[in-house]
């Protein structure tokens, strides 16, 4: 489960599943909406990477925030990036549509 495969960060974790493109979830370990988003991805059985930004320190955190800002200038969570397109917040319908 733990790897840096297909992702921009050494610290991200990979969840194996069906390939639906490059899916990256920027989340907080304490956030319930982030948890719901992760559970939705897991129940959809897609391959994705996720990272808990609140558990990052120093340069790793700065790098993650800079990355999120490219997609979501407000840097809020969850930020889900599917093939370069961001969905901000637990938007169940949008996420399901994006996953096809």
């Amino acid at each position: 489960m733990v790897s840096s495969y297909g992702c921009d960060f050494m610290n991200s974790e990979h969840v194996a599943g069906n390939d639906k493109g490059k899916i990256m979830l920027y989340a907080l370990s304490t956030c319930i909406w982030c948890k719901k988003t992760r559970e939705l991805l897991q129940s959809s059985a897609v391959a994705f990477d996720y990272i808990y930004v609140d558990l990052l320190k120093g340069e790793d955190r700065v790098q993650a925030i800079d990355e999120i800002k490219k997609y979501n200038p407000g840097t809020s969570f969850p930020t889900l990036v599917i093939d370069g397109k961001a969905i901000v917040g637990f938007r169940e319908k949008e996420i399901k549509e994006a996953l096809g």
Partner: peptide
């Protein structure tokens, strides 16, 4: 972590 109860859904 921080010494105060920050919103769990914000960094």
């Amino acid at each position: 972590r921080y010494g105060y109860q920050a919103c769990p859904c914000r960094l």
